[in-house]
Structure formats: C-alpha cells, structure tokens
Amino acid sequence: MKIIITGASGFTGQHACQHFSDARYEVIAITRKSEVEAKNCEVKYCDLTNQKAVLELIKATKPDYVLHLAGQNHVGDSWEDPVSSIQANMMTTIYLLDAVRKECPSCKVVIVGSALQFDVGNIATLTHPYSLSKTMQVLIAQSWSHLYGLNVVIAKPSNIVGPGRSNGVCSIFARKIMNMEQDETEQKHLEVSHLGVQRDFVDVRDVVKGYDVLFQHGKPGEIYDISSGINHSLGDVTMHLKTFTDVHFNVKSKQYGEINNPSPVNPEKISKLGWKPTIPFSASMKDTLDYYRNLS
C-alpha cells in the first residue's frame, strides 16, 4: 500500500517514515527542502502552500493513505506571523483534502490536530493564533469528510516526546544536560518555567503506531486523543533526566506558587481500537538524552 507522509523531515515525520517503511508500506516522504533520514523511502519535494503543486503531487502518486504531519507548530512564531501559521496549518490541509477529493477519493487520510485546540463555542478559550490555525484545520478535515464523504480521521496527540530533533521542553532539557556532560565550562543548572506545570507526555514511537491504528480502524470525521493518560510535572521531567547522568546540576524555577493543571488526557477512544502506549516515560527520557549524546 502506498502512503504519503507530509512533514517527513520533522520530529514525528522521521519516525513515521521509518515505521511505515518497516511495515512494508511504499512510503513517499514529502518535505519542502530538508533531508529525510529514514531508509527505503521515496523523497519528493513539495511546497504544500502551493495548491497547484499539491494537486500535481496527489495526481502523480495516487496514494492509498495520507498522513498529514506538516505545518507550523510554534506558538511564539504564530504570534509574530499569524498568516503564515494559518497558511501552513489550515490551507495546506484544504489543498491536500481537495486534491484527494479530485484524484483519489477512496484514499484514507489522517490529519494531525493539536491538544492546544480551543472551544469554538467559547472565544475566550482562544489563547494564541496557533490554536486558531489548528482548530480551523480540524474543522476543515471534518467538513470535507462530511460534505464530500472523504475517509478523513483526526488524531489529537498530547505532548510528544522521545528520541529525535524536537523543540519540546524535554528535548531542550536533554540537550542542555548533554552540553553539561561535554563542556566543563557549561553552567550546571536548568531553568524551568514552573516545576509544578503538568502535561501528558506520550512517546513519539507510540504515537506513530496510533496513526497506523487509525488508518486501519478509525472512523471518518472522528477525533481520537493519543496520550499516555498520565500527567508528569516539569519537576518529574528533570528528576528522571537526573537519574541518567553523572552531572550534578541545579534546577531553577522561574515561577512559584500554585498552578491550575489540566486533567490527564484519556485515550479511551483509540484504546477501543486496539492501541495502547507501551513505552514508559522514563525510557522516553533516557532515549531522548542518548539521542543527543550520539549526535555529539
């Protein structure tokens, strides 16, 4: 079976390409200009904000599956350039889905949303342009499924961690610790926004397996949370990382006091399809740290 993976050079994209290649899919890795490390993939370069280029891509490849990972995923950048964020997240999704509608309407598509989507019934829950762009992306996916009968499923992963290049907080901490290990002049401390901040972290390798399950069993138009179901604080993150290094470092919190943390994200819906997380949080932290060590 032929699968197109957009955002193939990104953190999750690299893992997805390797997973589906190992599972004997014919993988077409889509990137705008970066390299794709995964083996046994056909790499194609395409600017997904170009509607004509997207249509030509789908027409030429006629995929059985599309995993749409490409987009802008930085909250700070969305404040600086909201239009680009909307183009990268919403418009690329429209172009892909409409190309699928025209050229291969039986293709199954998984669109990857975000845990930072807001409640469209309450504008007060909108906190940044990134949230707007991802919420609109999901609405477009559901709308094309409803209006045109496309087989589109929406995945909503929680905070993705694990080995690979990522701008997530766990990777930032791991890179800092690796620098401490390699450079004796590096300051031996981590700065944390608030040690009590809690998030649901799920390993990237488990997430990619979840996307595979959604291709096989996900229902069109439905949204599936992919999560561990367990919250970990940033204090937990630093303590886990400390156990995997001989470097003694201090942790400095920029803020103190109570904080309102979200409840753990329940993955019950996708669990009913046969998926469950298998990689413990401690293993994710160790593998992340080892990844950056191996780069040095």
Results as ranks from 00 to 15, higher is better:
236 D>N: 06
216 Q>A: 12
235 G>P: 04
296 S>Q: 09
169 V>Q: 00
213 V>H: 08
10 G>M: 01
248 H>K: 11
219 K>M: 08
160 I>T: 02
132 L>G: 10
236 D>G: 03
260 N>W: 03
156 K>I: 11
122 N>I: 14
21 S>L: 06
110 V>L: 11
124 A>S: 15
105 P>L: 12
191 E>L: 03
167 N>Q: 02
21 S>C: 08
237 V>M: 10
110 V>Q: 15
82 P>C: 06
109 V>I: 12
168 G>T: 00
92 T>R: 04
141 A>D: 12
255 Q>T: 04
83 V>I: 14
176 K>T: 02
284 S>A: 06
231 N>D: 04
59 K>M: 13
282 S>F: 01
294 N>S: 15
125 T>V: 14
18 Q>R: 11
244 F>T: 01
58 I>K: 04
252 K>D: 13
160 I>E: 03
183 D>H: 01
150 L>G: 04
74 H>S: 14
56 E>I: 06
182 Q>R: 02
34 S>V: 08
191 E>V: 07
193 S>G: 01
255 Q>K: 08
112 V>D: 10
47 D>E: 15
255 Q>R: 07
129 P>W: 06
97 L>H: 14
40 N>E: 15
241 L>N: 08
12 T>F: 11
57 L>P: 08
23 A>C: 14
32 R>M: 12
277 P>Q: 03
32 R>E: 08
50 N>Q: 14
1 M>D: 13
168 G>E: 00
283 A>M: 09
233 S>V: 04
162 G>H: 05
70 A>T: 04
105 P>K: 14
60 A>D: 13
257 G>N: 03
205 R>V: 00
68 H>L: 11
171 S>M: 02
6 T>F: 09
51 Q>R: 12
122 N>G: 14
24 R>V: 13
175 R>H: 01
152 V>A: 05
246 D>H: 06
129 P>T: 11
189 H>T: 08
29 A>N: 09
268 E>W: 04
272 K>V: 05
104 C>R: 13
293 R>G: 03
273 L>K: 07
217 H>K: 13
236 D>H: 04
173 F>D: 00
211 Y>W: 12
253 S>G: 09
163 P>Y: 04
164 G>N: 03
128 H>D: 09
116 L>C: 14
65 Y>F: 15
151 N>E: 05
292 Y>L: 07
180 M>Y: 00
15 H>G: 01
23 A>E: 15
91 M>S: 13
119 D>G: 05
14 Q>M: 09
106 S>P: 10
75 V>N: 01
55 L>Q: 14
163 P>Q: 02
5 I>K: 13
64 D>W: 08
47 D>G: 06
10 G>E: 02
25 Y>I: 10
82 P>N: 06
282 S>N: 07
34 S>H: 12
98 D>S: 10
92 T>V: 15
271 S>W: 03
265 V>N: 01
149 G>F: 09
142 Q>Y: 08
34 S>T: 15
116 L>F: 15
168 G>S: 01
44 K>L: 15
59 K>P: 09
110 V>R: 13
191 E>D: 02
186 E>H: 00
100 V>R: 08
206 D>C: 03
89 N>K: 06
195 L>S: 06
172 I>K: 02
20 F>M: 09
28 I>S: 12
222 E>P: 07
42 E>T: 15
268 E>V: 05
10 G>V: 04
209 K>L: 10
214 L>F: 07
177 I>C: 00
249 F>S: 02
43 V>S: 07
40 N>P: 12
49 T>H: 11
165 R>Y: 04
193 S>R: 01
99 A>W: 15
